[in-house]
Design a protein around this nucleic acid. Structure first.
Lengths: 255, 255
DNA sequence: AAGTGGTCTAGACCACTGC
DNA sequence: CAGTGGTCTAGACCACTTT
C-alpha cells in the first residue's frame, strides 16, 4: 500500500518540494484534525500503523507527532496510545486563563473558574469590524453575548463575546455557553483552538461596567481584546473583557 | 575516556536514577552554561565530540540539544556548528518586549526600541521586598534605576529597575544600562535570562508619572511588574513599568 | 502475552559552511 | 574537500497498559 500513499522521498532526485518527510507527515495529520477526520479525544492509530499508511518509518511519524504533542494538539499515554487533545487536557487554567487573585500562592492555585451571568444575548448582522475579524460578508450573522463573570468574592470582569453564526448552527437566543467555552467548541463542534491573540490596555471603566463590578466611578480596568484562532487559521471567537485589577492581576510567563 | 565520564546506562541494572540519558546530558550541558564554562556566543564542540565526552550516542546528544534549542539556549547553524544563544539571537523584540504601537501592522513592525532618559540612579540596602525577591540578606545592596523611555513619538513608559549589586560588581553611580539589558547581562556577565514572570494591572498613574508621559491627571496606565529569572533560577532583575496605553498596547500570543 | 509509546543506538545520506 | 548539523531508517530494549 505504500505504493499509492507513500510521500515523495527526500532523496537526491526530487528538487521540487524541498520539505522534510516529517513536516509533510505533520501536515497530513494536522489536516485530518482540521477536516474532523480525527476528533478531540479520539485514540489515533499506532505510530507503526500510521507510518505504514504514509509510507515512512516509525521514527519519522514519531518526530511529526512530537511536534504536534509539543503544540498541544496530541496527548500521548504510554502503553495506551496517542489521543487527539481535548481542551481539558491542556488544563485551560494555565493555558488561556491568566487572571489570578493577587494573594494566590500558585501552589494553592485552586481551579476557581468564574461563574457567568448573562446580561444580553442576540443574533445580528456582522458589523464592518466583525466582518474583518471573521472574514465574513455583510449578510453574515454573528452571535453576541454580554456576560458578567464572578468568583466567590464577587464580580471580576465584564465581557462581550462574538461568534460567527455559521460555525454554531444550532444556537438559539437562549443557548448559554458553558464556562469552559474551548472545551465546548472542541467536544461539540470539533473546533480546535490553536492559539489566542490578545491585546491588553489600561482603560477607564464605562459607568455601567464600574457599577457592575462594584468599582468607583472612573476606575482603571484592564481591557483584554482576544481573538481565538482555530487550527485552520480562522478566527472563531472575538472577546473583549474589562477586568477589575484591584484584587486580581494578569500573569504572564515569557520564555 | 568514556570509561570515566560515561553516564550511567539506562539499562536493566540501574533502578536508582530513573532519568533518561538525554535528560542527564541536558542537565550536564545546562550546568556548563550556568557555570560560565560555556559562554553566550561561543561555538560548542560537535555533537559527536560531546557524545564521546559523555559516553552516549550522537542521537542522544542531539535530543538534549533539541530541547535546549527549543528553549532558546542554543542556536544551531547548519554546516557551522551549535552556538550558545546570545540575547540578540532570540530577537529580543518578540521575546520579551510586548509593547506595540496600536497602528503597527506586525508586518511593518520596525525594531523601534525605546530610548531611555535616566531620572535617578542609586545604590542602597535591599528593602524587605527586595530581599524576598532576590534572596538577599538585609546587608546586601541593590542598584536602583528610574528611567523614562520614549519612542520617536514621545514618552511611552516610566520604569523603576532594581538589580542585586553582587551580580554587577563594577557598577558606579554613573553606569548606564544599554537599551537591550538582557544582551548586556549576557555578553558582560554571562548571565542567561531563561524566563520572565510578569504581573499586569491597570492602575491610575501617579501625578509625576502622568506628567512625564504627557497624560491627563488620573489617566489609566498599564503597570507591569516583571522579574527576570536566570538559568540558575535566581531573580536577577526586578522592574516595574507604568506604560501609557492610549497609543500602545501589550500584545500576547497564547499557544 | 501482546501492543503501545519511550529511549537509545548505529549507520546512511543530504545540505550547508569554510578551507 | 572535510566537518558540521539535518533527515531518515532499522532495530533493540524498556516501561506501561490492557487482555
Amino acid at each position: 500500500m505504500a505504493a499509492t500513499t507513500a510521500m515523495a522521498s527526500s532523496g537526491s532526485s526530487n528538487r521540487i518540494e524541498a520539505q522534510p518527510l516529517y513536516v509533510k507527515a505533520r501536515n497530513i495529520m494536522v489536516n485530518r484534525l482540521i477536516a474532523g477526520e480525527w476528533r478531540p479525544g479520539q485514540l489515533l492509530p499506532s505510530e507503526f500503523s500510521i507510518a505504514d499508511d504514509l509510507g515512512v518509518s516509525q521514527g519519522t511519524v514519531r518526530k511529526a507527532m512530537d511536534d504536534m504533542t509539543a503544540q498541544g494538539l496530541l496527548v500521548r499515554k504510554q502503553g495506551r496510545g496517542t489521543y487527539v487533545a481535548e481542551a481539558e487536557d491542556n488544563s485551560i487554567l494555565f493555558r488561556f486563563y491568566r487572571l489570578t487573585p493577587d494573594d494566590s500562592d500558585a501552589t494553592t492555585d485552586k481551579a476557581e473558574f468564574p461563574e457567568s451571568d448573562y446580561l444580553a444575548q442576540s443574533q445580528g448582522q456582522a458589523t464592518k469590524q466583525e466582518q474583518d475579524i471573521f472574514l465574513l460578508s455583510s449578510e453574515d450573522m454573528v452571535w453576541r453575548f454580554e456576560r458578567l463573570r464572578s468568583d466567590p468574592l464577587g464580580p471580576i470582569l465584564w465581557e462581550r463575546l462574538v461568534l460567527p453564526a455559521r460555525q454554531f448552527p444550532d444556537f438559539t437566543p437562549t443557548t448559554r455557553l458553558p464556562n469552559n467555552v474551548y472545551q465546548f467548541y472542541s467536544s461539540r463542534y470539533g473546533i480546535i483552538v490553536a492559539k489566542v491573540n490578545e491585546k491588553l490596555r489600561a482603560v477607564t471603566a464605562p459607568q455601567n461596567v464600574s457599577q457592575l463590578l462594584g468599582l468607583p466611578d472612573q476606575a482603571p480596568v484592564l481591557e483584554i481584546d482576544r481573538r481565538a484562532v482555530a487550527l485552520n487559521d480562522q478566527v472563531v471567537e472575538w472577546r473583549i473583557s474589562l477586568c477589575r485589577s484591584d484584587r486580581l492581576h494578569y500573569r504572564n510567563e515569557l520564555k
